[in-house]
Design a protein around this nucleic acid. Structure first.
Lengths: 166, 166
DNA sequence: GAAGATTGACGGGTCAATCTTA
DNA sequence: TAAGATTGACCCGTCAATCTTC
């Protein structure tokens, strides 16, 4: 990483320009605050965490309201391990059931139950309202779209910098 | 929240326009992926989580490399509880010490030790490099500044929507 | 009693190890 | 052996209760 420079500490402008540092500060605040506020609000209102809601919403879009665990992990941007724990909890609440995947024996299929679907329908307005109130309504349509495009570019970079197989 | 509409589930475009939904999808991915990648990378490289780094960097900028816990919570966007746990762990590693605050008896002061400062200096290049590689370098200067401005607006909205005292 | 801070229990995510099927 | 998935241990953040000082 090269020689250790003087005055490295403090988060000062050692290797980030003032503008870059300010920008990162704003983004850092967003990363820190938004997920927790969103999650606290929706959990309180609906009894479903934001992540659980994503799982259920993804399942509801799959054929027969079902997806393979690995597909679900992809859809929710989560690790298989995290997902497996979460689905286990949802299963104990009778919101989801797991079955062996027909034809592809080593896969397993997560299925949204009727009860789960009803819960999802009931929770949806709250989740959508939270996203609208906390994010969408803060920006104009054009700003939102530009913002999303930048987010996409950063995620793209993340994927490139995180080689699953180097 | 009004009547429960038909076709509420599935994350479809029920109450978010297609554009809004797409934008939220991108932002959601960013919120889900960036913190964990950033944290995993810096923890592995330096033995300090991103949050611990923020604590130490904030302290290094305070007078005598010290801040009151409530000031530090503000600087790191964290709850006092989370901070207290984290500082406790840093204290057990001799990176920080806590003292009663002179003059303001009920406050306590977190102080970065010389050892902590050396660790911070050693870790800084890695943290800055991660931010640069994963975020800053993905966008042009202008895009980054626009992005940050939008992030700031959303956080502003968050603060407004999260009344500490209604 | 309120502000600043701490504590402990609980819920949930990560990592590494493991199991199973191809 | 590799892919898909699960499990358990450990770490950390949240929430509510508590303690201390004003």
């Amino acid at each position: 990483v090269g020689p250790t420079p003087r005055r490295a500490a403090g988060g000062n402008a050692a290797w980030l320009s003032a503008g870059e540092q300010a920008a990162w500060g704003e983004l850092r605040r967003l990363l820190l605050v938004l997920p927790s506020v969103l999650d606290a609000r929706t959990s309180r209102e609906t009894g479903l965490s934001f992540f659980e809601y994503q799982i259920m919403a993804s399942l509801s879009e799959g054929p027969d309201r079902a997806l393979r665990m690995s597909e679900l992990a992809e859809a929710t941007c989560s690790s298989l391990s995290r997902l497996s724990h979460a689905v286990g909890r949802l299963e104990s609440r009778s919101i989801v059931v797991r079955r062996r995947c027909d034809g592809v024996g080593r896969s397993s299929l997560a299925v949204l139950t009727p009860r789960g679907y009803r819960k999802l329908v009931a929770a949806a307005p709250f989740h959508v309202a939270a996203v609208r109130a906390l994010v969408v309504s803060a920006l104009t349509t054009e700003e939102l779209s530009t913002f999303a495009e930048s987010a996409r570019r950063v995620v793209e970079r993340l994927d490139a910098e995180t080689p699953t197989k180097p």
